[in-house]
Amino acid sequence: MKEYGTRVVAGVSPGKGGSLVSGIPVYDTVQDAIKEHEVDASIIFVPAKFASDAVYEAVDAGIKLIVVVTEHIPVIDVAKFTRYALTRGSRIIGPNCPGLIVPEESLLGILPPRAFKKGKIGIVSRSGTLTYEVSELLKDRGQSTVIGIGGDPIIGTKMQDIVKMFDEDPQTEEIVVIGEIGGTMEEEVAKMKSEGRIKKHIVAYIAGLTAPKEKRMGHAGAVVYMGMGTFDSKINAFRKAGIPVAKTPYEIKDLLLKV
C-alpha cells in the first residue's frame, strides 16, 4: 500500500507499541495512534476471533472509513458491528474483502497493482481474485475505482450503495458489477436501474451457475436459503432491467459501450 502511494501513517498491534515496521510507527491502541496522526481510514487484518474488537476500536476513535479484510467473522458479530458503525457515522467495507483501489492514486487493501490502470470503469465485486481477473481484462480501458465489498452474508457497504456512488462519480463512465449466488443485492441493483435511479450503463456477471443449493461455496455469503438469491433470479432481474449479463468473465469486455 505504501509503495502504491497510500500514506500509511500508523499501525496498531496491542503490546507492540513503540516499534517500527517498514519505518511506520506502531501503537498499542487506535487512540494512541490518532493522538499522533491525522487518520481518515483504517484497514483491519486482525484474525477473526479478535476482528470485531478492532472494528469497535476504530469506530470509537472516530475513523470514518474502515476496511475489514478478515474472513470468517461470525455473522451475528458482523451484524452487530456494522450497525454500531452506521449509527456512529463510520463506513465499513467488508468483512472478507480485498479492499479498494483508485488506480495510480491510492490502495486500501490487498489488490495486486498489476491488474489496474487509471481509467473510467467502476468495478464493484463480491469476490477477490475474480475482481483482479476482470480488472486485468479491462486494463485497456482502465478503472476509476475498484471495490471488493466482501463475500460475507452481511457486509458494511452493499453493492447497491457502491453502484449509486459510481453513478454520481464524474470519474466513472460505465459500471461493472460482479456478483454471485446468495442474498438479493444484485436484484436491488437491477431494481434501481429499472426505476431509472441509475443512469449509467451497467454490465453484470454472476458466479455460481453450477452451485448446488444450501451449500456454502467458499464465501459465507454464497449460499441460497429458501430459494432467495438464486443464479436465475439474479440473471432474470438484470435482464428485465436491461442490464447485459456476461456468461463468462471474459465476455464483460464485449458488453461495455466503448471499446
Binding site: S125, G128, T131, I178, A207, A211, M217, G218, T248
Partner: peptide
C-alpha cells in the same frame, strides 16, 4: 483460489 474465481 478465491471463491468467486473458482465458481466462475
Amino acid at each position: 483460489n478465491g471463491a468467486g474465481l473458482t465458481m466462475a
